[in-house]
């Protein structure tokens, strides 16, 4: 069976034998985008977090059939070296990653948070950012999330000035 979905702005049609295959494996193995990580397969750690129509989704627990016709964004599509997302800029400025494995999931969760709550308080962060990091980068992440909010708000205000 074929499923059509937009991944990082590009329309993709993938053939699947099982429509319940987790979106994670379609993204990683069929489309070759390895930035979205497998951590637990049980929607517990958040390493596989990506966006479906702008909402944070744990893709290990999201059947590909539900992505039909939807916009999927992965860490590769969030931003890149030429055009980084404010979250990525902040992550670099605060030198957040250690081993780095959980970080794409955290950055995707953070980007989703900033879409909903542009200037999150510590409490907003505590409630919404509930992925698991084993290296213990939470301390820098919190700083980076606040910084990303500032960067994004500045970027938006600059854009509105230009208009």
């Amino acid at each position: 069976m074929e499923i059509s979905l937009t991944v990082n702005g590009v329309l993709k049609t993938v053939a699947v034998t099982d429509v319940n295959t987790p979106l994670l494996w379609i993204v990683r193995d069929t489309l070759g985008l390895k930035g979205t990580k497998f951590g637990c397969g049980k929607a517990a750690c958040g390493a596989c977090t990506l966006h479906v129509d702008g909402e944070a989704v744990r893709s290990c627990s999201f059947p590909v059939k539900f992505a039909e016709g939807k916009e999927v964004t992965t860490i590769e599509g969030l931003g890149n070296r030429d055009n980084p997302h404010p979250v990525q800029q902040a992550w670099i400025a605060e030198i957040v990653p250690q081993c780095g494995y959980c970080q794409p999931g955290f950055m995707m969760a953070t980007a989703a948070l900033l879409n909903k709550v542009p200037n999150p308080t510590d409490e907003d962060i505590d409630k919404n950012i509930i992925n698991v990091c084993r290296c213990g980068t939470y301390y820098r992440m919190r700083k980076a999330i606040h910084k990303a909010a500032d960067l994004q708000l500045n970027r938006e205000s600059n854009e509105s000035k230009e208009l």
Binding site: N20, A43, V57, R58, C60, F62, N128, I130
Partner: peptide
Amino acid sequence: GFEATNCNTCHQSENNLNSGV
């Protein structure tokens, strides 16, 4: 749930037999 991390971050419209969610 919360603004960005809500029920549908993990729970979809049917049981997931891969993850047990």
